[in-house]
Nucleic acid binder design. Structure first.
Lengths: 238, 238
DNA sequence: GCCTTTTTCATGTATATACATTTTAAGCCG
DNA sequence: CGGCTTAAAATGTATATACATGAAAAAGGC
């Protein structure tokens, strides 16, 4: 037997998902009622209900009382983007990691810092600029502002071993984040720091992180466009 | 009463998520056993179990038999990227949409088409190049290859009203996709088509779509870097 | 016929129970 | 003490049941 002993829950999930992604049940199609599926699989309605609830959470079906469950129309191409920590990413390439801090200062927050939600007026902010090196080559330019009210320990922290991103991930895990991804031309200073020609195409990721209502940090990461690629994947059930 | 009548399931979910994202229960912390939570909320173990199962699927906690459930260490910054259909996106900006097809041909598939999984040898491929226009201005350059074995209807389809991406989304919904996002300098031809200076920074999205084992399409989208931004969001429970 | 009321039906949530699974801890014995 | 067996503990899966909810269809009144 190559077939693994899978649970009924998983089997129902897989079979219905299969019918949807194969197009056998196109968007708008009403899938069988819970009672019918329960009879088909010889199980109780609860078992079917849990599987369908999961499909609904994944966005594959939409459930309407009295009417039944319907295959949804995919609204767009959504995908899961995994942005690894920079140090981890470089080490995964088999290269030695180093962080060269160019600037570090404590100042008052400005509106231009772009925190979301906005900083309270007069908040103290730690500003850091550094270059992440993969071996001898510059890998990424980082400009970061940290809300010291949210993470006071940052003022005394040393970011030469653990870069700010990873350090913050350990201090403030599981915060919410918003990303903006753009292509920009490198300024003269940025090109010099990254070892590129001025005006070279770069991938810019701006991330705003908040913990509940409290803004934590905002960072701008600049990657040489010809050397870095982001990957995102989409699978119906994830 | 401003408080909505929420279900117990949701309340358990929210409270535990709140404790995790606030840092009150840091990574590695063992959360109360199902029986303890059931006693605390005055409900049955099943109700707690369903909530914890959902948190585990979201990746917030890890469950170990006999030992209990533990808050996980976030492995990196992951986020959900929503890539809307181009026509929808332009119409959402309040601009009229148009699609200018520059090239359209049927030819044999090549390895350079980059399908995943690879095309069978000699497969027929529909090749399309077009410029998406937002009002008078070029918005995005599209180069696409469609596997005619997977979508034979594409050969006769007209993409002036419905662009290829949206058309395919209707024909082959719920397929799996892989995205690569890079910053590139526009070539002379690309710059001309987009109304940019040669070498201008552009955001390049390459998407490979497959339906099960069958490759469906591969597309390269080129956006002017200074005019387009991708947004991605992360929230613990999604 | 049209509007309102009632009924019906599918899903939503929750319960108590049962047994399987897996991993840790305890117990036993040489 | 070390290695084996055994029991206990917590999660995993599934059942049967109950009632709530909301929307569509049927029934009723004018």
């Amino acid at each position: 037997m190559t077939e693994a002993a899978q649970t009924l829950h998983q089997r129902i999930l897989d079979e219905i998902e299969g019918r949807i992604v194969s197009g056998e049940w196109p968007p708008g199609h009403r899938i069988p009622f819970e009672m019918e599926l329960a009879a088909h699989y010889g199980c109780s309605r609860m078992t079917v209900n849990k599987a369908l609830t999961q499909l609904a959470r994944a966005g594959l079906i939409e459930r309407r009382k009295k009417s039944g469950s319907f295959v949804t129309q995919p609204r767009g191409q959504s995908a899961v983007l995994e942005i690894a920590d920079i140090k981890t990413e470089i080490l995964a390439l088999g290269l030695p990691y180093a962080c060269d801090t160019r600037r570090r200062a404590v100042r008052r927050g400005r509106a231009a810092d772009g925190f979301a939600p906005p900083l309270p007026p007069g908040a103290r902010v730690l500003e850091i600029a550094c270059v992440h090196l993969a071996g001898p080559r510059p890998f990424c330019l980082e400009e970061r502002a940290i809300n010291l009210a949210a993470v006071p320990e940052a003022e005394a922290a040393d970011f030469s071993e653990t870069p700010p991103g990873l350090w913050l991930l350990r201090q403030v895990p599981w915060s919410a984040a918003e990303h903006r991804i753009r292509a920009v031309a490198a300024s003269a200073a940025e090109a010099e720091a990254l070892g590129l020609a001025p005006g070279a195409a770069c991938l810019e990721i701006t991330r705003t992180t908040a913990c509940g209502e409290r803004p934590v940090t905002r960072v701008r990461l600049l990657y040489p466009g010809d050397r870095h690629t982001l990957a995102a994947r989409f699978t119906p059930t994830g």
